[in-house]
Nucleic acid binder design. Structure first.
Length: 891
RNA sequence: GGGCGCAUAGCUCAGCGGUUCAGAGCACCUGCCUUACAAGCAGGGGGUCGGAGGUUCGAAUCCUCCUGCGCCCACCA
């Protein structure tokens, strides 16, 4: 054997992610690997990041989401596609305004103290700070985003896109302004979309109140959960078919406490089965009532101020908070004996998704998008499969929402966001404009006033897949990278974002924005609770990266998260990824330690089948199988399975067996080919693992001999592995038998408490001539790996005393000479158990085969397999019985 | 009120249209510092696959019902 000078490429003895992760990211970024060129070239592959809110730093949910995206991107990049991972952030209107207002509150200030301009400036400062921090976190996570293309939803370009869409929709009549009941958050002081008003079931009260009839001794009984709104009642409604009230329709009731006359109308909406069958109509404070009011010409009387205190229309209750007013009104009604019943009642109450305040249905002027026309193409796209969902069940959820879509409230009474591009001139002309106008396009008058409201934050996000690429300009980026390919996101924003992006994609581009929607699960804590700041149960990705490295974080998150399933995470779970990285590091270290200096190994592709030993063939076959499995899992977006497949291969095939086997060959005549296989498989394994663990794979890969890297500068841009198609199935089976033999020998020793240091002889009995011949040559390895002093492969069972045996399968058994270590009683019990197990299996199998229906109806190959199994079991039992008999004669 | 989903080892979950499918990781037990790795190696224990029925030669796997969780949607005051 030639000199074994330690390779200069030797790895440091200790794996330290902190040291290497920062280094490689900078190199990749500098070399421009993240920045695919637009224009002609290889097939593009695009993912746009779901832009994180600039409200704060990234949490574990982002960690999972962005890792999935990066793994997909990295694989496609290695497959030769022009992979673009487009990063960015979202201004998150209400949410960001809220956090900045909270910050101000800590200084004793309100936004009004600053004024609109100064306040918005302050929010920009916040955005700069957190936007940078988010980008920094993403870099630490190792995601290969194209930073040159990073976008923010309020960038000039994206703002232009927002205006363009607004004006188009406005001019086509798809945007309108109207006085409607919307969800009003009294704390945020703004309208919310239906999606932003989250419904929460809660226990409430249902009061039944008597409304006297005018000019009559009788009264109507009316049920309500919000008595304070009665001050705004302008009518009573009953079902037209309700016999109880038929005579009252057209008559008048008197509003208690106020004395207002309320017309009694008949409307289909009323459910005669519920409550008393008679409903008070409060058009200004309930969406249903609003529509009833419209149908019957009942006026809408607003009794609330925007901060949810009663307004002057509430008379003596003016100025009171809505809940206090409720108490007072109930008390007053009680005093007059008008409360007939109070029951507890479970019902859904809307709450602001940002501050959890109970929202108030509130009548006000807002801007809306007519959704019906936009929904059609979006619905058709999923129905005919142009857009696919993973897991598939989300398709139904998506379609259900689109089928029942309602108009979208897009105006918000806040300051942070895209100002609504609508102006009114002194003469009352209203118009929308792409550019800030100087004068009225209709009458030329100046003194224009812009609508003070801003747009819902999603009004910019829904354009994200194309606004980020330059739209409305026809840029090269847009032509190259749109439509994007895979959208990875959480189910919570399926309506907010995903469905609307599809609508916008078809409306603006005439094409779907992406092909696959992959819904990832929610990251929860060990108890299954949502990670949240208030619970303090969140795990900060930055801490995990600091402690275990980004590779460990990524790998753990991915392999613990089956597609679309929530995952419960405990901090110690990250040891899985960390340990794996460490294992890989040491395996590579071992391989490198055995490289002669200046040696130029061949790549795997250059090896010939004839040079390879049986176990090398087994390993290469396993590699091929793994590559195929990984690809299959990727194609189904089952990244956890893909990751596990690589993990299992590298750890349990490569480290556990291949390296151990190779140890015997490295110094012998087969040393060179053994090293080439070991190196080549490591190299391919690294590429297979790279999307999951980009840093450690690069670090190791860079230290491989130059010939293996094939002149490629980085593993990031190396080729994705492909199966070689060796077809070594037979060898693989034989090697599997050898592994079973070794395991059996180890098991025998352990069962009899043989000290590992004790080298005892091993006998392997193989009935089949061909198999035996194959194993004879491996005797030395069999002995070494089972801790035996030597191995004897023969056709007959060992005759001598002091042996314990195990039947591996029919015709193959293993015996170890433990001599005085053998505890006869223990051995007898063990064999007894073996026999029983085999008998049970045999009887079950025989039962099946005795069943005529099974033999006739089951597929032929299934029956054949059962027959073979039975034969094997009978042979095994025969041997076990004779082993037991031999044991008995020893006494 | 409607829709969807989940219940498999102590924990987190695989088992992707049935017949070596009862698995993985972690945890646990036993023994090992075997010159890559104790963040490791070897061996091991542990589950009537939520319950009840049904279909079938055969069901953790398909169907029905029940129980217990979770999520989404919802204009019954």
């Amino acid at each position: 054997m030639s000199e074994r000078t330690p390779s200069t490429a030797a790895l440091p003895p200790r794996y330290d992610p902190r040291d290497l992760e920062g280094r490689w990211y900078a190199v990749w970024e500098e070399r421009g690997y993240f920045h695919p060129p637009a224009g002609d070239g290889p097939e593009p592959y695009t993912i746009v990041i779901p832009p994180p809110n600039v409200t704060g730093v990234l949490h574990m949910g982002h960690g999972l989401n962005n890792t999935i995206q990066d793994v997909l991107i990295r694989r496609e990049r290695m497959r030769g596609r022009r992979a673009l991972y487009l990063p960015g952030t979202d201004h998150a209107g209400i949410a960001t305004q809220n956090v900045v207002e909270r910050e101000l509150a800590a200084e004793g200030l309100t936004r009004d103290d600053l004024g609109r301009e100064a306040f918005v400036e302050r929010v920009w400062a916040w955005k700069e700070k957190y936007g940078e921090e988010i980008y920094d976190q993403l870099r630490k996570l190792g995601v290969s985003c194209d930073w040159e293309r990073a976008r923010f939803t309020m960038d000039p370009g994206l703002s232009r896109a927002v205006r363009e869409v607004f004006v188009r929709l406005y001019e086509e009549g798809l945007i309108y302004r109207g006085k409607y009941i919307i969800n009003w958050c009294p704390r945020c002081g703004t309208a919310l979309s239906d999606e932003e008003a989250e419904k929460h079931e809660q226990e409430g009260r249902l009061w039944t109140i008597r409304y006297p009839l005018k000019g009559d001794a009788g009264h109507l009984r009316i049920a309500t959960t919000r008595p304070e709104t009665m001050l705004g009642d302008t009518g009573i409604a009953v079902h037209p078919g309700d016999a109880r009230y038929r005579d009252l329709v057209g008559k008048t009731a008197i509003l208690p406490l106020v004395g207002r006359e309320l017309p009694i109308v008949a409307d289909d909406f009323v459910d005669p089965e519920f409550g008393t069958g008679a409903v008070k109509v409060t058009p200004a404070h309930d969406p249903n009532d609003f529509w009833i009011g419209q149908r019957h010409g009942l006026p809408a009387l607003n009794v609330l101020d925007p901060d949810a205190t009663m307004n002057e229309a509430a008379g003596e209750y003016a100025g009171l908070d809505r809940f206090l007013a409720r108490k007072r009104i109930v008390a007053a009604l009680e005093a007059e004996g008008l409360i007939e019943a109070v029951e507890t009642h479970r019902h859904a109450v809307g709450r602001c998704y940002r501050c959890d305040t109970v929202v108030e249905p509130y009548l006000s002027d807002q801007w809306f998008v007519r959704m019906g026309p936009l929904a059609g193409p979006a619905l058709a796209a999923s129905r005919d499969g142009r857009i696919r969902f993973t897991p598939e069940r989300w398709r139904k959820v998506y379609e259900h929402w689109l089928e029942n879509v309602r108009d979208w409230t897009i105006s918000r009474q806040i300051w942070w966001g895209h100002r609504i591009p609508v102006w009114t001139c002194a003469n009352g002309h209203e118009f929308a404009a792409r550019e800030d106008p100087e004068r009225c396009p209709e009458c030329g008058s100046e003194g224009l006033e812009q609508d003070p409201d801003v747009l819902d934050t999603w009004f910019s996000s829904w354009l994200w897949p194309f606004s980020t690429l330059g739209w409305p300009d026809e840029t090269q980026d847009l032509a190259t990278f749109y439509p994007t390919d895979t959208l990875v996101t959480a189910s919570e924003i399926l309506f907010f974002w995903v469905a609307r992006m599809v609508m916008a994609g078809y409306y603006c581009m005439g094409k779907r924005p992406f092909t696959d929607v992959v819904i990832n699960g929610t990251v929860r804590d060990a108890q299954g609770r949502r990670m949240s700041k208030s619970l303090g149960n969140g795990i900060d990705p930055r801490e995990v990266i600091e402690e275990h490295g980004a590779d460990a974080l990524r790998f753990t998150l991915l392999t613990e998260a089956p597609t679309g399933t929530d995952l419960n995470l405990a901090p110690e779970d990250f040891k899985k990824g960390r340990n794996f990285a460490n294992k890989l590091w040491n395996a590579a270290r071992f391989v490198f330690m055995n490289l002669p200096g200046g040696w130029e190994p061949r790549r795997l592709e250059e090896l010939e089948a004839a040079e390879l030993g049986e176990r090398e063939r087994w390993l290469l076959q396993r590699l091929d199988d793994t590559v195929e499995a990984v690809d299959r899992h990727f194609d189904g977006f089952r990244l956890n399975d893909a990751g596990d497949a690589v993990y299992g291969f590298l750890w349990h095939a490569y480290c556990d067996w291949a390296i151990e086997w190779a140890k015997a060959d490295l110094d012998g005549p087969r040393g060179e080919i053994a090293r080439e296989v070991l190196l080549g498989v490591l190299e391919a394994g690294l590429r297979l693992l790279h999307p999951f663990m980009p840093f450690i794979t690069e670090e190791i890969w860079q230290r491989l001999p130059e010939t293996l890297r094939g002149g490629v500068d980085s593993i990031m841009i190396a080729d994705w592995p492909e199966p070689r198609g060796w077809g070594f199935g037979t060898e693989a089976d034989r090697v599997a038998l050898m592994q079973e033999v070794i395991s059996a020998a180890r098991n025998l020793r352990a069962e009899h408490d043989a000290p590992p240091s004790k080298r005892v002889p091993l006998v392997v009995v193989v009935a089949d001539d061909e198999l035996r011949a194959a194993l004879v040559g491996q005797a030395e390895d069999l002995a070494r790996l089972s801790g035996a002093s030597g191995a004897d492969v023969r056709a007959l069972a060992p005759a001598g005393d002091g042996y314990v045996s195990q039947v591996v399968r029919g015709g193959v058994e293993v015996a170890v000479r433990l001599a005085d270590l053998v505890d006869l009683e223990q051995e007898r019990a063990r064999l007894e158990a073996e026999v029983r197990r085999a008998e049970g299996l045999r009887d079950a199998t025989r039962g099946k085969l005795d069943n005529e229906a099974f033999v006739q109806r089951a597929p032929a190959e299934v029956v054949a397999r059962e027959r073979a199994k039975l034969e094997d079991l009978e042979q095994t039992l025969e041997r076990l019985e004779s082993l037991r008999a031999a044991l008995d004669t020893r006494e």
